[in-house]
Simulated assay, not measured.
Amino acid sequence: MNIVSYLQTQQPQLRRQFQSALVSGHLSHAYLLSGETGSPLLEIAKFLAKSLVCEHPSPLADNVCWSCLRIDDGNYADIMIFDGSLATIKKEEIQGMEASFEKTPIEKAGRLIYILHLVENLTIEAVNSLLKFLEEPHQEVYAFLTTENESKVIETIVSRTQKLRVLPVDLNMIVALAIDQGIPLQDAELLAHFYQDPHKMKAILEEDFYVSMRDAFTHFLEALASNYSKAHYIAIDEIIERFTQKEHLRLIIDMMLLFFGDILALQNGQEPSLPSYVNILKPLLKRFANLEEALLEITLARGQIDLNVNATLLLDHLFIILLKEYIHDHD
């Protein structure tokens, strides 16, 4: 993703807000970047961090100086990045960071920076350690925290940070850009709900787990139209018992919400969010009742992913919730 162009064209308010603080010398010691799922939060946080140490800022990072390039490579000594999308951020990591930041900066910029991506994925103990650090900010220490769900970030963290809101980008525009990158229409529509960067979408499309998951879900939906038993078997054999990692679980639940949300939308005469899948979804309109309650329960269950629940058991439970609303043929 060309993050400079993205900020200029899609997030001008955020760009102006941070640039003004940087130029005036009124930087906050901690920023909270919040945006929808799929927003390039980590990429933005890295770029703003670069802007604090860039060798030739104008006034934001030029993205090509030696310092900026070393940040991209993970070789800049005074920046620490913790990615909560990969694993829960633990107390020991926060304490190790705090200990490191007690020392004098190594780089000539003289600033110490840490990025916590998806702070909603910190353990309670890690949150408590972070709060102590935020309450007593050190001079020339800056933080960039990100979240896809601000309601899950405790108020004491929110109140100690300067908020930067990443606004939603028009979905149709993302789909169009993805298609221009050679991504097939159905994949473009589906992935646009999870990623705003067509290059990221293209990379995901090359991942075996996504292709397998997409095909299994499509197979499941097609079977539901005429053969409940076959669909039930596919749910167990091709989805529940196959995809057990946390990141896979999120995507499966999000696919559930998208596809069955579209069935509900079509039942109510509304436009679907995945128009290219209508031919697969239309045969299911008379196969389901009371989807509102099932979708609500699935939405609530999504919040359990970070509680280290058993993925297989959770998926099994969610498919039971969906399939109990299935209307069987009567002889």
Rank of each mutant, 00 (worst) to 15 (best):
I3M: 05
L69Y: 09
V153P: 14
D215T: 01
A223L: 06
K132L: 04
K282P: 03
I234K: 07
E148R: 13
D72W: 11
A294Y: 12
I157W: 01
F259W: 03
N308Q: 13
D329Q: 14
L224V: 02
K108A: 14
I263V: 15
I327F: 08
E120T: 13
Q19M: 11
N227C: 07
E207A: 04
L116Q: 05
R70S: 15
S85V: 03
P40N: 05
Y6I: 09
S20C: 07
L284G: 01
L164V: 08
P105L: 05
F288E: 04
E92Y: 04
E125G: 06
R160N: 09
T123G: 11
L296T: 12
P168W: 05
M255F: 14
E92L: 05
P275T: 00
A203Y: 07
H26T: 10
I154A: 12
Y31Q: 10
M213Q: 14
L52G: 00
E241C: 12
I71L: 10
E125P: 05
L27H: 04
L322E: 09
H29R: 06
I305T: 03
T9P: 06
V211S: 13
E98N: 15
R287C: 05
R111S: 06
K200P: 04
T156G: 08
T299C: 07
L86A: 14
I79K: 03
P105T: 08
D187L: 12
K282E: 13
Q267G: 01
K103E: 09
Q17T: 15
E206K: 15
P40W: 08
A188C: 05
I71H: 02
D331M: 11
E93I: 00
L167R: 15
E136K: 14
L48K: 01
V23K: 08
A231Y: 09
C65M: 04
D197I: 01
P272F: 00
T88R: 14
S100I: 04
A231W: 06
I253V: 04
L32P: 06
V211P: 02
D78N: 12
G84N: 02
R15Y: 10
Q181V: 02
S159K: 10
K286V: 05
D197F: 04
S159T: 07
